[in-house]
Write a protein that binds this DNA or RNA. Structure first.
Length: 472
RNA sequence: GGCGCUGUAGCCAAGUGGUAAGGCAGAGGUCUGCAAAACCUCCACCACCGGUUCAAAUCCGGUCAGCGCCUCCA
């Protein structure tokens, strides 16, 4: 809670418990969600790489919270349900799986535990009762509110003072609150509100913030290590989480990490602004691996500026890395068994990568290390044969650092690997052989025509000293 | 109004007080029948003005511009 970069020390040696605020499942995920998920996925992967046993908990918010702070009862999921003519839980289910599918394609590993808000109503009610018992919450009109005046530490995460905040900037302040800034722990369900549960205060539904306090404590215990989420959640969501947990007497997260936003045209991409691109649309034209590469190309705490040009840039850059790895693996089986000067260079780049990641997960510097590695590898490959151990060492660097840590170079990814079936492989051999005949007899018009035809369907032919090769 | 962030090449993006990582795009060259890929070479007075320092992109003050949160938002 120092609002600065600090050294990480696990609460229990060798183990890390981390909690990430997950999505509200009422619509398709967009690129901004991907930035957050990928950022924390990389953090988790790197901690794992460093030998920690990580328990990664990320919630699913399937209770439909209100569109705004108004008194009206329509919530986001219910609204969507009406729109799509679905049961609210069908909406939640649909977009939950949609989210999982999108993240899977981006190479985001599944959480160790993925608790749902609707499955933890009891835990939330219990926490609310503890708060009431300790005098930090009060019931009013079938709802329960957190009494911010009773908890002086409220605001410590985001560095805010209550008195400085503008009151009720948008909506009329509810009369039943003791203070305008008190936030709901439990809300009375009005007539027509579909998602509702029994509680000591009547039928209702939990407030937005309470689920994260209840579920993180349940699965990670008190004083767990890391709590993450988007910077836009710092206040009020995370502030409220801390207050709820600590005012109830529970030690909460020891480190807080917030990813910055993704912008397009210098504006935050968000659902409310409508300037978002859903991942599903994006996957139609951009390889998920390229999107992931693009995201790790900027630091998680930095704003990532998105544009069409950025996709092209990422596509070409990622291809360079990918091609070098492919060439290494192609030459590995026949590489001579001797030491090579490349080894020391590889080791140097591996060290640079580790140093970058150890310093607040600096993925841009880590990626730069991979590019520098690639330069050395390509130079060595261009110069002639390279010793097997050096190649194996380089391969391991790509696979372990770029692959396991950054989540790149996934097997079966579209670039270079798709359709690499026996049939396609044989057909391509036949075509390239025919083309080679044309070339040897200097019938270049014909050979170039073949190459042109292949290019039209996205296949690139490259002539090398050792014959032609192709890639997609 | 309060809290906070950012301004680095055409674009993206790191940067730990000691004279700017990396990628894309671009220019020239090597190789090639031509391409492609790869390799070699080139490409930044770090928004502006002051200050501290032997030394500032980096620290301090100010100015300008932009952004985020304070309302659902990743």
């Amino acid at each position: 809670m120092q609002r600065q970069k600090v050294k990480f020390e696990a609460g229990t040696p060798g183990k890390v418990g981390m909690y990430l605020c997950g999505p509200t499942v009422y619509s398709d995920a967009h690129l901004g969600h991907a930035k957050k998920e990928v950022a924390f996925d990389v953090i988790r992967r790197y901690l794992t790489h460093r030998g920690y046993s990580v328990r990664y908990v990320s919630n699913i918010t399937d209770v439909g919270h209100l569109q705004n702070d108004a008194d009206e009862g329509e919530d986001k999921i219910a609204r969507r349900a009406a729109l799509e003519k679905l049961e609210p839980m069908e909406v939640a289910e649909k977009y939950y799986w949609s989210f999982m599918d999108d993240m899977g394609r981006l190479g985001v590993q599944r959480p160790s535990i993925q608790p749902r808000a609707t499955g933890h109503i009891t835990e939330q009610i219990e926490l609310i009762e503890e708060l009431i018992a300790r005098g930090h919450a009060y019931a009013a009109g079938g709802s329960v509110y957190f009494d911010v005046r009773s908890w002086p530490e409220y605001g410590k995460l985001s560095g805010r003072k209550l008195d400085d905040q503008e009151e009720g900037t948008r909506e009329a302040v509810r009369g039943e609150k003791r203070d305008a800034r008190d936030f709901a722990l439990w809300k009375n369900a009005e007539t027509g509100h579909i998602m509702r549960w029994n509680s000591p205060w009547g039928e209702g539904f939990p407030g937005w913030h309470i689920e994260c306090s209840a579920m993180s404590l349940k699965y990670l215990g008190e004083n767990f290590d890391i709590h993450g989420g988007g910077l836009d959640l710092e206040f009020p969501h995370h502030e409220a989480e801390i207050a709820q947990a600590e005012a109830a007497g529970h030690g909460f997260a020891r480190y807080w990490m917030h990813n910055n936003m993704l912008t397009i045209g210098n504006e935050k991409m968000s659902k409310s602004k409508g300037n978002f691109t859903t991942l599903k649309d994006l996957f139609e034209r951009v390889d998920p691996q390229v999107i992931r590469f693009l995201l790790v190309g900027s630091h998680y705490r930095s704003i990532t500026e998105m544009s069409e040009e950025a996709f092209v840039s990422a596509q070409n850059g990622y291809r360079r890395l990918h091609d070098a790895l492919s060439e290494i693996e192609r030459r590995l089986p026949t590489a001579p068994d001797r030491p090579d000067a490349l080894s020391a260079k590889v080791a140097g780049h591996v060290q640079t990568f580790e140093n970058a990641m150890s310093d607040d997960f600096n993925t841009p510097r880590a990626v730069a290390a991979l590019f520098n590695l690639t330069s050395d590898v390509n130079a060595a490959l261009a110069a002639g044969e390279v010793g097997r151990s050096a190649l194996a060492q380089a391969q391991a660097a790509y696979r372990e650092l770029g692959g396991q840590v950054l989540g790149l170079f996934a097997a079966g990814a579209a670039i270079g690997a798709a359709d690499d079936t026996a049939l396609v492989s044989t057909l391509m051999d036949v075509v390239l052989e025919a083309r080679q005949h044309y070339r040897l007899s200097k019938q270049y018009a014909q050979s170039d025509a073949l190459r042109g035809k292949l290019a039209e369907v996205g296949v690139t032919v490259e002539d090398t000293k050792n014959g032609a090769r192709w890639k997609r």
